[in-house]
Each structure stands twice: as structure tokens, then as C-alpha cells.
Simulated assay, not measured.
Amino acid sequence: MVEKFQKTVDFVKSQYPDKNFIALHEPAFFGNERNYVLDAIDSTFVSSVGAYVNRFEEMMAELTGAKYAIAIVNGTNALHIGLVLAGVKSNEEVLSQALTFIATANAISYINAIPVFVDVDQETLGMSPQSLRDFLVHHAEKRADGVYNKTSGRRIAACVPMHTFGLPCKIDEIAAICEEWGIFLVEDAAESLGSYYKDKHTGVFGKIGVFSFNGNKTVTCGGGGALITDDEEIAKRAKHLTTQAKVPHKWEFVHDEIGYNYRMPNLNAALACAQLEQLPLFIENKRVLAERYLDFFSKMGIQFMHEPQSSRSNYWLNALIMDDLEERNALLTFTNDNGVMTRPVWELMNRLPMFKHCQTDGLENSIWLADRIVNIPSGFRP
């Protein structure tokens, strides 16, 4: 086992020959980042109004194929406002997955809604359409005013699947199930900028899709997010709510409902625009690395998470599937002790104290994967 782990460390280091310590994912700034940020500073428009905010929204709409994009201060807030726009109310339920970053479950909690966790597919790491359908068939019923959980008695208001590590889930099937049951779909595409499923960019399969531009994402602006939609009314309301629900006026401060200070600052947008210009290069670079990993680990007898069928992944974070928990922990210890940063997948949401009361469907695949996943360095290689 030690020999196999040493070969792993040596191969990862060979992909980043100029680094003594290989981080999991570092940002790469070598385009117009400095020029655009300085231009934003010189303009004096550094907060949530500015030319780069508008440009960022135009670039995101063009990239994803959505009609509208709204710049948000971060991905978690984009999820939150997406659920508000979906009409989710306090004490209602939102179907999601336990194998996800905490932002997904936190955003649901911000409106005092309750997450319900269904299982994922092993080949995508994202929500399983079959698990979603089985849960609804066995636990839900349609009523005149919506879909209700027969066990809890609460209305099921929305569904939030996530494209884990940039690997697209079977989102078309999930969208069809949500349409059949009348459940609002908010697509958590936080990690999948530049990923496609059946030739469509992630985030466009439901009425709302959200993205993150955190410091460790494929494209980053330090902190940032975006909400996309084809619905004009949703887009208008998203911009209104994220601008403190201020009624437009040259000098008066009138607000017509509870709003949020969620707009992305122009400084961040300037950085994001420069990064978006380089997205094709970033993804090409990451896909070459993924193919090298696939070839190496296949020869080593270790499963590497390759992009699922009918998809094209951005390979945001590469992942290995180890044989068991013991081997996973041994690899994590060896790599981190030898200059290569690796990490396990997030703790399953239902195992955290604030979500342990939430209903699940058993989460067989999620539990199996949580014991085996190891993320390995995935950043841009100069």
C-alpha cells in the first residue's frame, strides 16, 4: 500500500514540478485581472453598481445560454435568493442530497425550510433520479395546493440537486420528475461552470440555476455568485430583491419589501470578467490533467471519477474512489504528510448536528461514497 501511495505522490508532483507543496486547487491569475481591477478602482465604482457588473452578467448569460444572469455576492446567497424566488416558505421542505457542500443545506435553512435528503448515483455523485422518484412515490402525495410529504405533513416546495465536483448529474431526468410532480427545480451548479450535459450547460435545466466564484473554483473573483434564468419576471425580481428591494429613483430611498444586500461588487466583477475570458483555457488544461490521472490510476487499479455518460465535465475537483474507509484514511494521511494536499468528501449533511433530524431515504450510495472519496490536486498547471 505504501508503494502505491508513494507512486501517487510522485505522479501528482510531476504534474506540478515547480511546487514544493501541491495545493488542492489554487487560483490562476495571468490574464486581464490586474488591469480590470485597477480600471474599476479608477472608475470609483467599486460597490454593486458598475460596468463590470453589467459585463459579468452579459458574459454569464452568453456562456450558459440563459436569457438572464444576475450577479450575486456569493454562491450561498445565490442559492438562498433562488429558493426565495421559488416561493419556498418557512416549515416547508426542500429535496436535496446529503452528499453536498454545506452551503446547499444552509441556504435551505435560511428561510426556515427543512432539507430532505435523497441518495446520489455512484457514477455521477449527484442526485439519483431513481431515488428522487422512489421517494416521491412512497412518501409524497399531490394535493390541490401542491405536493405534500405524507410522513411529515409538510409541503415539498422545491428540489435542489447539485453537480458534485463539476460532474453533471442526470439533470434532465430530475427536471422531468420535478415537472411531473409540480416541484420547483433550483439547480445547484456552484461547482460546474463550464460543464455540459447533453450539450446544454448546467444550470439551465430548471427555472433557476446558481453558480459560485469562490476562491477555489475554476473561475474565481475571491467571492462571488450568479443566478441564471430564462424567466424575465424571475430575473427582474432577483435583481430587485438582491438590491435591498429598493424602488429605482434618482434620490429617494423607498423599499417596497424585505430585500437583501446580495449584489456582487464591481471590484469582484472586474476580476470575474478577466477570469471568464480564460475559462476555455482553464478547462482545456484541467481536462488534460484529468486524462493523465485517468490513465495513471487505471494502471494503479484505483478508480478515478471520469465524466459521466452524455456529459462534458469541467473537472473542478478530481476524485478517487478507494476500496474502503481504511484505505481512504491511509491515503489521506500519506499524501498530506508528503506535500500533496488531499481531502475526503464533505461530511454527509444528515450526520451534522443541525441536520441529523432531517428525513432521508437511507442514502446507501452516499454512505458508501463518503467512506471512499479522496479529492486530489486539480488546479491549473502552468
Rank of each mutant, 00 (worst) to 15 (best):
R328S: 01
C169H: 04
N112M: 08
A370Y: 11
I376Y: 07
S43M: 02
A144G: 14
I156C: 06
N338A: 10
G222T: 04
V2H: 09
G65Q: 08
G339R: 07
L193Y: 01
S212V: 02
A270D: 01
N74L: 07
E277R: 09
G209I: 01
N266I: 08
F30C: 13
V37T: 03
K7R: 13
T104E: 04
E3V: 15
H139N: 14
H25V: 10
A103H: 06
T243S: 12
G301K: 06
G194N: 03
R351M: 10
T151G: 13
G223N: 15
N365C: 14
K207W: 03
C159N: 02
D145C: 07
T64M: 00
G87W: 07
L125M: 04
S195R: 07
K7Y: 09
A270R: 00
Y68P: 04
D361L: 01
D361T: 01
A157L: 06
N285L: 05
A66E: 07
M60E: 03
N216M: 15
L325R: 11
E277G: 02
I41T: 10
V254P: 04
K207T: 10
M305K: 12
E26L: 11
Y293S: 01
M60T: 02
I156M: 01
L276M: 06
S48Y: 14
Q303R: 15
I228T: 08
G126F: 06
F5G: 02
E326Y: 06
I108D: 00
I114C: 11
V288R: 11
G222D: 04
T229N: 06
L279Q: 05
L95V: 12
T229F: 05
F184S: 14
Q244T: 09
A23S: 15
V118A: 02
N336S: 12
A226C: 15
T44K: 12
K286D: 04
E187K: 08
A157G: 03
V340C: 05
A238R: 03
K286T: 03
T164A: 14
G182S: 09
L193R: 00
H255D: 11
V116G: 05
I22W: 00
D18Y: 14
I208G: 12
V88R: 01
S152F: 09
S43W: 07
N375H: 13
D10S: 08
V204T: 14
T335Q: 03
F11M: 04
D18S: 14
F282Q: 00
G379D: 02
E232R: 15
C159P: 00
N216I: 12
K150R: 10
P280F: 11
N54K: 15
A269R: 01
S378T: 10
M341Q: 11
N74K: 13
F11P: 05
M59G: 09
F5Q: 05
A78V: 05
P344W: 13
V288D: 12
K250Q: 15
G82S: 11
A157V: 00
R154C: 11
K356C: 14
M1Q: 12
K239D: 15
V340E: 00
I70V: 10
I174A: 00
L279T: 01
T104H: 11
P353W: 04
L185K: 00
Y110T: 10
E173F: 12
I208Q: 04
M305R: 11
T220D: 02
E33L: 08
